[in-house]
Simulated assay, not measured.
Amino acid sequence: MAESTMKPPKIAIDPVAWMRQNLFSSWYNSLLTVFVGYLVITSAGPLFTWLFFEATFLGDKPSDCSGTGACWLFISERLNFFIYGFFPQEHQWRVDFMFGLMALSFVPQFIERFPGRKWFGLFGLTGLPVVGYFMIPGGWFGLEVVESTKWGGLMLTLILAYIGIIASLPIGILLALGRRSEMPIIRGLCVVFIEVWRAVPLITVLFMASVMLPLFLPEGVNFEKLMRALIGITLWQSAYMAEVIRGGLQAIPRGQYEAADALGLGYWKKTGLIILPQALKMVIPGIVNTFISLFKDTTLVLIIGLFDILGTVQSTVTDPAWQNVAIEGYVFVAFCFWVFCFGISRYSQNLERKLDTGHKT
């Protein structure tokens, strides 16, 4: 008789028992709970008053923000600049179209029973970059060319993070496999690449890519500043990604390699069908943590003259017409980053639960 694979039912805990177990399990936990609760209660009131109750949401000019609360009028008035940067307004529909495709590709991944969600996700990893290559810069199918110097805001942040994530993962996998290779030359090259790039801060990589790289290129050969930044971010991120994946490869039991060899599988089939899927599943938290770190590090492109969402806010708060609104701008930036990073984190947790094979201890 086949054994049942059903999981045991979860034990329900009533709220009082949960609080007694997690918040008041000992005298010091009880004291800490009361202290934290006091801080939350005393700070929540003034915070919500500043954020909402006494905030200014509507108006026509900066002088309308005369209250003691937040001036959200600043965000609404400059929202177009924060999202598109200097992208021409008559062509912003192309950016909106890409935003829609991105949402169509990744939002269904959070809905378990969404029909065809795997195909939408596959399109987001393969087809979306291709469509963006034609839509955003223009010059194809009658679309007017928009120079990368006019890109900015949230649009530029997503471009930097998305391309960096998509490109660094496969490069990182190859580097991790190369570092574990039995061929000394390949292993040595991968080790040197990883250690050199990991030893250099990203801010230095961006500076070198923007200022020093053109000095070493042949005469007449040049890359746009954005392209140089993307290359630097991708290579830098690939080194970190390689070490995360190498940790997963080393965690695979030796028996898995021996079983694959016993089946007569070659190196690439053994790696692609048996070893790599298990390794990637083990290091999902590390991979996602690296992605989130890259997403936040995109703000460093400000030092080379690229205005991402943080750069657009910083350039706006210096306007004499908008004084004392820096806090509102930074809160807006923090909220945007939190939304995307939290979404990435939640999807990774959902993926971990789906791929869980019961080997957790």
Rank of each mutant, 00 (worst) to 15 (best):
I304C: 11
N222M: 04
I171H: 07
Q92R: 15
A260V: 06
P253I: 03
G248W: 01
G255C: 12
I275N: 07
F48G: 06
E243C: 01
A279I: 13
T357R: 15
F291H: 08
L31R: 09
E243V: 01
L128D: 03
R94W: 05
V95S: 04
L101E: 13
E112D: 15
V331G: 01
K296F: 11
W93I: 00
L189M: 11
A251M: 13
L217W: 07
S168A: 14
G127H: 12
E243D: 00
G139D: 00
G178L: 03
C190K: 02
G116W: 10
G247M: 07
E54Y: 05
T56A: 01
G121Y: 08
F134S: 03
P108K: 12
I252N: 03
A242N: 03
G264C: 11
L294P: 05
W50C: 05
M212Q: 08
Q92F: 12
A2H: 10
I287P: 05
E328I: 02
F24V: 07
V333L: 05
W338V: 09
F332Q: 03
I327M: 13
I274E: 06
A229D: 05
L169H: 06
T126Q: 09
R179N: 08
I287V: 12
P137L: 00
A161S: 15
T290D: 11
F307K: 04
I159P: 03
R20H: 05
A242I: 05
V325D: 02
A279T: 13
W18M: 08
T312W: 04
F120M: 14
V34F: 14
P218D: 11
M1K: 08
G100K: 01
K360N: 15
E258T: 01
M183F: 13
V130K: 02
I194A: 06
L189V: 12
G286P: 04
T42C: 00
C190Y: 02
L230S: 01
A44T: 06
V16M: 08
V221K: 00
D14G: 12
I173W: 04
L213S: 12
A242E: 04
P170G: 07
G264K: 12
G178D: 05
T68M: 06
L175Y: 00
S76I: 10
T157D: 14
G127M: 12
G69L: 08
F99M: 09
Y330M: 15
K269E: 14
V313P: 10
Y267M: 08
I252F: 02
N80Y: 03
Y240N: 08
R246M: 06
L58P: 07
L189H: 02
L101C: 15
I185E: 11
F223Q: 01
L217M: 13
G142K: 14
R346M: 13
Y240K: 07
G69V: 08
K354W: 01
C341W: 09
G127P: 09
M282E: 14
F216I: 09
N289I: 10
G164F: 12
R94D: 03
F295R: 00
G59W: 11
S345W: 12
E77T: 15
G138D: 06
V283R: 00
L177W: 13
Q250N: 09
D60M: 14
T318Q: 07
Q250L: 13
F110N: 05
V325Y: 01
A12N: 11
Y133D: 02
